[in-house]
């Protein structure tokens, strides 16, 4: 990727809501999907820790932000932005607490543990009256026109997706990226080389929590209604989508999750209604098919198909390091 590639993407992204004014919400969700896929990939792709539980940070951010907006009495924009920040903070704190206990486990145990975590979060939120229990929570209304509101959220999500992407690009090319890749390849060897693996694992998990926790508040406001099991801690939608998108695009790379998110979201918007209520059945089937027959994802497939053209993209970061 050259500089002008990025420039074109940037221009397209900025003009998209004005070229396609009818699809602003869907476009905003496109950036959300990118954030979801990228933040799952930190754990699942780069570090090889299959997490079913990242969705909890999304839900925590959503609830913290909405409760803050409800109880602080601040004006809408201040409340929203501060609330999103607080949501991210809460997600980070919780990630630190449970990360230390949970990330000592590996493989099956970690995966099932996080699966349990996501269900617990939904169940607890559904029983807690302060946050609306099972009947959910309604964030305050946007003070303005619907079309203006959609543009606002579009750019909010776009900016956070950009920050997520750039931050990940930056941390992956340094020691952190190498260390979590090393953990993926052989954790025992990483420990034998003196790497404090738990520190890196908790950092990766916390980073993932930060990106999800912040955006959760925005999503709650855009959807306009927070349901504990179907929106905030929804294992059957966002929770599964993030895994599916990352694997579809190619886990363990920076562009893979982005590509996967775009393809998945566009296909979903175009064809999902054709399934007439059978979407979630199709989703289960889709996971099985992708994981079993296409585990390397689109990027991995391209790399096998055109090893020479794609190798450049692989090694470019390394060459940069060498030239310094």
């Amino acid at each position: 990727m050259r500089a002008w590639h990025y420039l074109i993407i940037l221009l397209l992204a900025v003009s998209a809501p004005f070229i396609l004014p009818d699809y602003r919400t869907q476009l905003a969700f496109l950036w959300l999907m990118v954030i979801l896929a990228l933040s799952w990939d930190i754990m699942g792709g780069q570090m090889g820790y299959n997490s079913f539980g990242n969705i909890i940070f999304f839900g925590i951010g959503m609830y913290v932000c909405a409760v803050f907006q409800r109880d602080s009495g601040l004006e809408y924009f201040q409340g929203l932005l501060l609330g999103m920040g607080l949501g991210g903070l809460a997600a980070v704190i919780i990630a630190l607490i449970i990360g230390n206990a949970l990330l000592g486990m590996r493989g099956h145990y970690f995966a099932i543990g996080t699966l349990g975590l996501s269900v617990v979060a939904g169940e607890l939120a559904g029983g807690w009256d302060y946050i609306g229990a099972g009947s959910g929570l309604t964030p305050p209304l946007y003070p303005g026109e619907i079309s203006e509101r959609n543009v606002f959220f579009y750019f909010l999500f776009f900016v956070w997706a950009g920050i997520t992407f750039v931050s990940l690009w930056w941390v992956y090319r340094g020691r952190f990226g190498l260390a979590i890749n090393a953990i993926r390849d052989n954790e025992d060897k990483a420990e034998a080389m003196g790497i404090y693996t738990t520190r890196y694992k908790v950092s990766a998990w916390t980073l993932s929590a930060l990106f999800l926790g912040v955006i959760g508040g925005g999503v709650g406001n855009l959807i306009g209604f927070i349901d504990p099991k179907d929106v905030a801690f929804s294992g059957a939608t966002f929770g599964v989508w993030m895994i599916l998108m990352a694997i579809l695009g190619g886990k363990g790379s920076l562009w893979g999750p982005v590509i996967g998110a775009i393809i998945f979201h566009v296909t979903q918007e175009l064809f999902w209604t054709l399934f007439l209520g059978w979407q979630r059945v199709a989703l289960g089937l889709l996971i099985v098919l992708i994981v079993v027959f296409f585990p390397e994802g689109i990027l991995g497939w391209l790399r096998q198909r055109y090893p020479h053209r794609m190798r450049d993209a692989n090694n470019s970061t390394e060459k940069n390091k060498l030239n310094k």
């Binding site: 340094g174 020691r175 363990g252 390394e318």
Partner: peptide, 29 residues
Amino acid sequence: RIFSGLSCIGNMQISAPVVRSGLKSLFTK
């Protein structure tokens, strides 16, 4: 045992001793 998904240079970089340890060294180049 080596890190099969990293290049040889990557394997070496990750094995090089860290001068500063602590939170900051996690993210340094």
